[in-house]
Design a protein around this nucleic acid. Structure first.
Lengths: 339, 339
DNA sequence: ATGAAAGCGCTAACAT
DNA sequence: ATGTTAGCGCTTTCAT
């Protein structure tokens, strides 16, 4: 069951290992016939190249790390698909690690990847992360990083892929207004996540424009779980804030809010219309299906993959920010409630 | 930005590379003081071992492949958590690949992993997979495999982790009966998946026992998507089959069915009680929350991780089957509808 | 307790 | 067009 190496082939064919090697990859400097003989023998004996050996030579592992805060929602999975689409054809492996929204896990994951010698790291941050110092160190030590979705604060200049959050949030809130909502609450994401304020700003801009912004309509959530969405609704109710529409930072928050409202016998969208920001299947998994700003997640992954390849090829290329365009999808949760 | 190697350390300290190596790992055959000096220098210069080099020596890559049919539901993510819990502390990397329910992708993924020289493969099959021959070849070529959830047919003897499907399915159907259901439909999984018939058998056993089994109550689904669940309900309705309960092969099928029923203004659970087989968050994401047989997914991953470690350590150990116990969780979708 | 040297599988100068 | 050799970073005999 021992693995066949080029040495075995060389013995078998009475050729030097370098000839074997050349036959296996060189186009020229190799006799066509010899090449064929080698190829045939390789197939016959079941030769498989040993990636490890090559790695040792090149100093590259041909693998990149993919770190995500969670894998419970399909968000990361979709981005991953894009990443793989770009990297697999080039022979890269993708090592996936999840941080469970814990900055300490994120730290461990990054250090693990550095130990593994990955050629690059693509990462979506935990909220509440405080590892900016570490990112900087890793990049300085020579492992390129690309960020997507949740990116580090402005002070750290890096390559990243994001979506035009503010404007799309604004458009979705406009939609809520267009279907008849007068009092739109916003379930705002954790303040530790950059997107939170971007999306909140889009929301505020529109409500201000229509002169219906009230500070108590905005609920800051601690996380983005269903539970957080439920809690937000409870807070609104406890404060006696009236609302006929909800714009949520993520689909999970929206779903948590919606399920709680359904529990209280509210009708969606008749009593409360709900819209969110997302891009995953989840908005279709619930009833009624959620209107949402769909982020082009697969594209996001592809963009991240390309950015990291750039960096791997030439560590000195300037950092770039790719801004992708999100799409508004209207579903039953906001359907024509105009009275 | 060049990486520090033991050679650098050896030069720096005027010691041979072998002494450095020993200091870094040997317990004995090394002067305590020398050892300390090496360790200090390693830290000071920022030495990180190069895993690749070691791999080349040992022939092991210290990485295992994890192949799943999909990552849209949190199913795989939870199992993965268990796998990582077992493997990370031992320094193993986990390379995750998804097959998108396409046997041809599954093939590609497996061949990719073989090329990557992974030390072992943990896999959950696609439905409709026809790659049994390939599994056999891979195992014979020396890469151990462990299967979980969707396992190969009886003819291929392998190490695997499963759940006591039949008995738990039976118990869940008993529950449906106990809350008042008289006509329980079964959304059966694709026949290409072993579990399908196991769970269906549990269902049949109970309906037979209560003498309420009717063949037209069983709908064979082509896949396990929401859409498949919806189609199944449509079929039942089209055939004019009356039903007041549904037992679904997976939570996705159940959710697809439920959403469609809600669309038709049916009340859950009053008109139709619904239960499923699962183990993911999804059953809690919907409204009303779904009663379901919760598989111990993290445990499943841990078991798979342990099995693969066994195989890696000693390729000749006998194949084992680990059967885990699933738990019945009753939620609102089946709550007390007894009239 | 330490050093010298071989070797893991492969590629790429450098011969020939 | 083919062969020889060195070397990637590390561990591990085998000497000393």
């Amino acid at each position: 069951m021992k693995r066949i190496t080029i040495k075995d082939l060389s013995k078998h064919l009475n050729l030097s290992t370098s000839t074997i090697s050349r036959a296996l990859l060189d186009e020229k400097n190799i006799n066509a016939e010899t090449k064929q003989r080698v190829l045939d023998a390789a197939k016959a004996l079941g030769y498989k190249p040993n990636a490890t050996a090559l790695n040792l030579k090149t100093g590259k592992t041909k693998s990149i790390g993919f770190v995500v805060p969670e894998m419970v929602t399909p968000f990361s999975a979709k981005v991953l698909k894009g990443v793989q689409k770009v990297l697999y054809p080039l022979g890269y492996k993708v090592i996936i690690l999840q941080s469970d929204e814990k900055p300490s896990n994120e730290r461990d994951n990054l250090m693990l990847l550095e130990r593994f010698n990955v050629d690059g790291i693509i990462i979506n941050l935990c909220h509440e992360t405080q590892n900016e110092e570490l990112y900087k160190e890793i990049i300085e030590r020579g492992t390129p990083m690309v960020f997507f979705d949740r990116i580090p604060s402005k002070t750290l200049d890096v390559s990243k892929v994001v979506v035009n959050d503010t404007i799309k949030a604004a458009l979705m809130v406009e939609h809520l207004i267009s279907v008849g909502c007068k009092k739109i609450a916003h379930l705002m994401g954790p303040s530790s996540v950059r997107n939170s304020s971007d999306r909140a700003n889009g929301y505020k801009r529109i409500l201000t424009k229509h002169n219906i912004l009230e500070s108590q309509l905005i609920i800051k959530c601690e996380g983005v779980s269903l539970e957080d969405g439920k809690k937000a609704v409870e807070k609104l109710l406890a404060k006696g804030v009236e609302f006929d529409g909800i714009f949520a930072f993520t689909d999970t928050l929206a779903i948590g809010a919606m399920n709680h409202l359904l529990q209280l016998n509210k009708r969606i969208p008749e009593d409360v219309a709900i819209a969110s920001f997302s891009g995953t299947e989840l908005s279709n998994y619930v009833f009624p299906p959620l209107s949402s700003v769909e982020q082009p997640l697969v594209k996001m992954g592809k963009a991240a993959g390309k950015l990291i390849l750039e960096k791997i090829k030439d560590a000195t290329v300037a950092d770039r920010t790719v801004v992708l365009d999100a799409k508004l999808i209207y579903r039953a949760s906001t359907k024509g409630i105009v009275s």
